[in-house]
Design a protein around this nucleic acid. Structure first.
Lengths: 367, 367
DNA sequence: TTGAAAGCGATACCAG
DNA sequence: CTGGTATCGCTTTCAA
């Protein structure tokens, strides 16, 4: 195999072409430059090397490299089935937009998903909407290869499943019991809530409230966490009272008003408050602090998520840590296997959580 | 103008077609259904109503609606110049990924940008990379209509400007003095820093350190903030010392180690620390708290950003608030005007900032 | 191993 | 007002 010899004519042509930086090089042009057909060029691009002679391969590769060829995705899209696009859908139903975007979980999961998607050679579209129909329209419009849906309500997830055949992976979603083949990546929500409630009980707490914001009756993850909390109470022989499940608003002003009132009335009934997320737990610590209530001296508080709020809060929040990056890795890998038409190893993945002990819980056994 | 009469044949056809939910309806099919040409259908879709007779219009609109027509963006892309795609680029140079994604600013700006982009009928791609060349390749590949680049280094911004003609708006970026027509949306960084430093001085502080992490000499926004801080010192007759500009690491462990050491050594020299971001300021408050140093009793601290960290921190952080949503609105609107080939009203927008007084600064004038 | 040619869906141009 | 048709860049099929 002899060494590749530079061709001055080709060099000149490539240079001439490189001047037109405004218009992109096309496969046809590459073909013309290399003196081969478009077919050969595509074969090289797609790594079908067995279909190309060594010398041709080199020549084409050189032209590709030197022109700085960039494929036009429009052409690909048109030829169906390979957009290389993955769309991350977020449907904020209850919580309002501002809150969700400020929640560090949002940034973390978006960042992690982007990294996973890009590292697998896909591109990420982000679409945030309350309207499931609109989401489906855009997915079809862009022929996206796959969808990752973040924490939506059961009605929406059913809608997504019924209205498209696009590979679909949910994160943190719970579903109607309708037999549809949902693929979900979630947490051991129930176990996490159980663990932390048990921890509170161990520390001598007997009257513990659970606070969440996903409706009465609770839906989705909050229902699971409530169940875990109640399981722990029951198994330790403590009474379960409907009234100990408290609904808090997603609106900061309403939430604070509630807490300010709560402090001077019903709070006396409890020694500990278990919030369904760090976001709300920290907000409560701060509100109570402003009301002169000290944590954990006057009341113990814990959360769920283990995010940066929990670590940067003083007293440091006792909480349940979830693996955010792990969620992203898992979701993308499941989605890719769906895209490859493989049957996923598991439809319902529940990632493990762990207890993070901070200083927001008082040990009541010590006098 | 007589009422539109339903056509049973058409109804049947539409129903038949709707069964093929797997393949999308095309303009050709719409045309066939409505008994017109593709041209007419496009005209209707693009609202060129003056080119279509009333009756035809109605018929076509009905077919579009009933088939649930969704345009295939591939076709559009191919016909150049109208991808309706805006790509948000993030190039983390110094700070590491985890930190950036956890910073609430990230989530807030992403959320706000998405909303702005979508509400103007565009689609958002998110691309996070350290490699400017890679960014340009993807932008060309997708023929994106515009790019929004978040806080990159001067070298990268120059690279972007030189290597593409795609409309480009920067956020929070400072540039080389190379005469390129950068369009940027930033803050009154200098004024903000000036304001808060002046506030500290008013409260009796005379030795104030400035802590940031964008290198020595500082680059980008940190250089401006440093300048504002020094302007305030100078104008109030206080000495300016190189050593009062302290570099902190983006790595949590290094930063904390530095602070822990700092507390027992050089910190005695200062009565106040001004951090270049709330992220670092809050981290410092927490680290100092753990070291038994109380804020503001032992030392005063302030930040810059006015994000949720600052509000949820106790003592509440005194800081400079920036309009995050405003940045997104402004950036998207400038980008759209660039896309429309208009000359932007302003190349360099600096949004106003305001002082937020918390409880993290001690009034030294009170004995 | 290579090439010619037919499409993918939307659009714009030009004729009627 | 409406329709035929060529085009965009890429892929695939089929023939050489």
């Amino acid at each position: 195999m002899r060494a590749y010899v530079r061709d001055p004519d080709l060099d000149r042509e490539i240079f001439r072409l490189s001047l037109y930086t405004c218009t992109m090089t096309t496969i046809k042009q590459l073909a013309a430059l290399a003196g081969v057909s478009p077919t050969t060029v595509t074969n090289v691009i797609h790594g079908r090397y067995h279909k190309v002679r060594e010398e041709t391969l080199r020549k084409v590769q050189r032209v590709i490299k030197e022109t700085g060829y960039v494929p036009n995705m429009g052409g690909r899209l048109l030829n169906k089935c390979d957009s290389r696009l993955i769309c991350v859908l977020i449907t904020w139903s209850r919580r309002d937009e501002q809150n969700v975007a400020k929640d560090p979980f949002f940034g973390e999961i978006i960042g992690s998903l982007e990294r996973e998607i890009r590292s697998h050679g896909y591109f990420m579209m982000l679409y945030i909407s309350e309207n499931a129909e609109e989401c489906i329209r855009m997915a079809k419009s862009w022929q996206v290869d796959g969808l990752i849906v973040l924490g939506c309500m059961a009605d929406d997830s059913a809608y997504f499943m019924r209205h498209t055949f696009i590979p679909l992976v949910f994160i943190d979603t719970y579903f109607h019991d309708d037999g549809l083949p949902y693929v979900n990546v979630g947490l051991e929500d129930r176990r996490g809530a159980y663990l932390i409630t048990e921890y509170l009980i161990q520390k001598g707490h007997r009257s513990i409230a659970f606070l969440a914001n996903n409706g009465k009756p609770p839906q989705g993850i909050d229902r699971e966490r409530l169940t875990g909390y109640r399981d722990a109470l029951r198994e330790h022989g403590l009474p379960i009272d409907e009234d100990d499940y408290l609904l808090i608003s997603h609106r900061a002003d309403e939430r604070r008003a509630f807490l300010r009132d709560f402090v001077h009335t019903r709070m006396k009934k409890y020694t500990a408050l278990f919030f369904s997320s760090d976001f709300y737990a920290v907000d409560a610590i701060v509100t109570l602090y402003d009301e002169g209530v000290r944590v954990p001296e006057d009341i113990s508080i814990c959360g769920f998520d283990g995010n940066i709020f929990a670590t940067q809060c003083r007293p440091q929040l006792t909480t349940v840590k979830q693996p955010v990056l792990g969620k992203a890795v898992c979701a993308v890998s499941m989605l890719l296997s769906l895209i490859r038409q493989e049957t996923p190893s598991q439809r319902n993945t529940r990632l493990d959580v762990s207890l993070v002990i901070g200083n927001s819980v008082k040990d009541l056994r010590v006098p």
